[in-house]
């Protein structure tokens, strides 16, 4: 009995401090120091409608936009997940073949691997600089703008996420599509 009473007293104390006080303190720091990312980097148009989150991939299928990596959950932001398929699974080969067809990749102009491989959560917002350049011709043609303009956008936006540890530069797909459309955001 004494054991249970002591356990209950400690339950109350740990709940109050480790759940109540701790969560409130972390929340307050987030609000004060990183108010944008603390709210999940939501992007809002000047008129108040929400476009998405800077941190999450969205579906893009029109030729005039950069396309993200494939998603096993169709870019579901409220139920994320990966394909969980083994490298020996033919399902992966079938899905990759669809990607190859969509991009019109050929042996002379092979597709960068991440455009055929789904990410862990199906929401990876990035592609590599190489995969972005791979899409320049299509975008330039659809928008009827010079390829150089799209290439400049890519090189302006590309960054190495981990400095010396990650030599391959990446770009945020939604960020570039916003720039292509010249969307006014808050």
């Amino acid at each position: 009995m004494e054991t249970l009473i002591s356990s209950l007293r400690i339950t109350v104390a740990t709940m109050a401090i480790c759940v109540g006080a701790y969560s409130a303190a972390v929340w307050a720091v987030g609000r004060a120091v990183t108010p944008d990312t603390a709210e999940a980097s939501i992007i809002t148009r000047a008129d108040g409608t929400v476009i998405g989150s800077r941190q999450l991939a969205q579906a893009f299928t029109q030729p005039r936009y950069f396309w993200p990596r494939p998603s096993a959950v169709d870019y579901n932001g409220a139920g994320a997940g990966g394909s969980n398929k083994s490298p020996t699974s033919t399902d992966l080969t079938d899905r990759a073949a669809q990607a190859v067809a969509a991009y019109g990749a050929t042996v002379e102009n092979p597709l960068p691997a991440e455009l055929a491989a789904a990410s862990g959560a199906g929401l990876d917002p990035h592609i590599t600089e190489r995969a972005a350049l791979y899409q320049v011709a299509r975008i330039a043609q659809a928008r009827n703008i010079p390829a150089g303009q799209v290439e400049k956008l890519i090189s302006d936006k590309a960054f190495a996420p981990g400095g010396v540890f990650t030599p391959e530069r990446i770009v945020n797909v939604l960020d570039m599509n916003l720039a292509l459309d010249n969307v006014q955001i808050r």
Binding site: P87, L92, A96, A116, A118, G120, P161, E168
Partner: peptide, 20 residues
Amino acid sequence: AFNDLPITQDVGNLEGKELR
């Protein structure tokens, strides 16, 4: 899974992984 397709594979197995 991508071996017989026209896909550049020089960065290891990317299925289920995040680029960042």
